[in-house]
Design a protein around this nucleic acid. Structure first.
Ligand code: MN
Ligand code: MN
Ligand code: MN
Ligand code: MN
Lengths: 217, 217
DNA sequence: ATAAATATTTAGTTTTGTCTAAAAATATTT
DNA sequence: AAATATTTTTAGACAAAACTAAATATTTAT
């Protein structure tokens, strides 16, 4: 597997989780920052390798084999992120870019040793689940903060968007995984929320609220 | 810098340490396992980037810039090897191959953090010195076991050859970095040595002796 | 000093992954 | 159900890094 092939497989995987039907050529092109024609070329190649099922004009889905492979790449990405944060004291906004490179290192043994070294973490620094060596991962029933009920006690358990800008905004507002959140009120006009965060009151926009995962305490 | 360019720079660096004059096209081809014509192509490219000084038919040398870059790649390679052995409990024969991939990860900050995490090691698991972030490294006056004087006390400080086969041979003979070695006698016919290793007597071939670095205790 | 052997470079291909522009298929509007 | 818009694929080109085969330069041997 080349780095390029792995990146396509990973993107198709991430898109599949959101929309389980066939994935569009254009959607892939948008995520990889390439042209639709390049995507078509790669889909043919991945189809030849039986990593995806692909029919012209009908979009693409991962095969069993492709699905497992995707989870192994995601496993590597997230384990490296945990390593960078927990052991090398990087901040959660710094690790994604480096993990994008590290996820392509080819050694199953390395990842299993790293997994053990880190204490078999179930989640990465952004709250995303880490597949184990068999591709299994825990699921928690998280919802978006934008869908929260008023006056219930929630905990922040993840971010939907891992961009540097968003993560640094959260740092600035002292919002992190494990923060206690209660929605005090919702503004009709712009869907902004007034929330209680660790005993302090704060107003956040709808755009922020729809990128934060929470669960009931 | 592409992975391919980095591999060429690193090979030219390693060859330079052995023979400080211009490096042959063929010598590079032999190390990289490629054809001489491919080497010529790459030397032109590296010359354009001012990483090497190159004149047709006259061999090649690293520029200041290329030399520093080479040391940064070697630094990454050796730090990762230390990590794999000291933290993830890999054996010294398993790490080179994985480090060949890890050395191309592009993040200075990552390597400086890893360096700190490992306690700023001066040597890698094979006894090779690790350049610091400025490219400086310690030099010890080591010699080959094949050049040792009789009946003097030496310590094993490194291996010249890091192949899996050689390292596993050393494991089998219980020879490791730090082992105490005294040459008891040398056979005229084949230059084999009878040595005292950690209080036991052992015979080794000339080929082994010329791949082990030692220094006086 | 010439011939032979070796080393190196050039010229022309190949493969991979990308691109642009044009053609074809599908989806959406009227 | 056409017409229009959008999406996707095809065709052809390009750059990087490799290759083979042929041409040159350099070194070694006679
Ligand atoms: Mn990430
Ligand atoms: Mn993450
Ligand atoms: Mn090594
Ligand atoms: Mn080493």
């Amino acid at each position: 597997m080349t780095v390029s092939e792995e990146n396509y497989i990973k993107v198709i995987y991430h898109l599949s989780l959101v929309s389980p039907k066939g994935i569009n050529t254009n959607a892939i092109a948008g995520m990889i920052d390439t042209k639709a024609s390049s995507v078509t070329d790669m889909l043919k190649k991945l189809s030849d390798k039986e990593l995806v099922s692909y029919q012209k004009y009908q979009g693409v889905t991962l095969t069993e084999k492709g699905f497992y492979l995707a989870k192994m790449i995601v496993r590597k990405h997230r384990l490296w992120e945990v390593f960078l944060v927990n052991k090398l004291h990087f901040t959660w906004d710094e690790v994604h870019e480096i993990a994008e490179e590290l996820e392509h290192i080819q050694s199953e043994k390395l990842m299993n040793r790293l997994d053990e070294f880190l204490g078999f973490p179930a989640f990465d620094p952004h709250g995303d689940p880490i597949p184990n060596k068999n591709g299994e991962m825990v699921t928690i029933d998280k919802i978006l903060l934008s869908e929260a009920d008023l006056n219930l006690e929630y905990v922040c358990v993840g971010v939907k968007n891992s961009s540097v800008e968003f993560l640094q905004y959260l740092d600035k507002q002292k919002i992190s995984l494990g923060s206690n959140i209660k929605v005090l009120s919702k503004e009709e006009f712009d869907a902004s929320l007034t929330i209680e965060l660790n005993l302090k009151t704060l107003t956040i926009s709808h755009k922020i609220a729809e990128n934060l995962f929470i669960k009931i305490q």
